[in-house]
Amino acid sequence: MDQQKDSGIQEFIDGVCHDIGIDVLPADQQEALRQIITQDLNAFVGERVFFSLSTDKRSELEKIIRDGGQDQLDEFFASATVDLSAILQQSFELFSMKWRQEAADMIASVS
């Protein structure tokens, strides 16, 4: 998570949390929900990027994720045919929508 601190991710997650009105929850629950959202964002982005790759590239990415470092990731996305920026942007937008919907569903189920 340290890696993400300076990258705006936390800011984005703060925004999502704000959108769904997290501040009405007790502090410990806020933190728990923030963790869930963070983990969900990671999985959401990971899945979307992964499935945008060819099978060969998926294998390669898997190895880099497991054993490699940032340089390898850099090389990987430079050579991959996917537009990472577009996927990320779309993922962020969809992720915000998704959580707003989740919140609305949650409210509807208890109200």
Partner: peptide, 26 residues
């Protein structure tokens, strides 16, 4: 989902500049 989460975390970390731009726009 764990592998996706791990991959996503690394990718997001890697793509920090781009993410920062989106977040700034938002």
């Amino acid at each position: 989902m764990e592998p996706f989460a791990i991959a996503g975390e690394k990718i997001l970390g890697f793509a920090g500049d781009q993410v920062k731009k989106f977040v700034d726009r938002i």
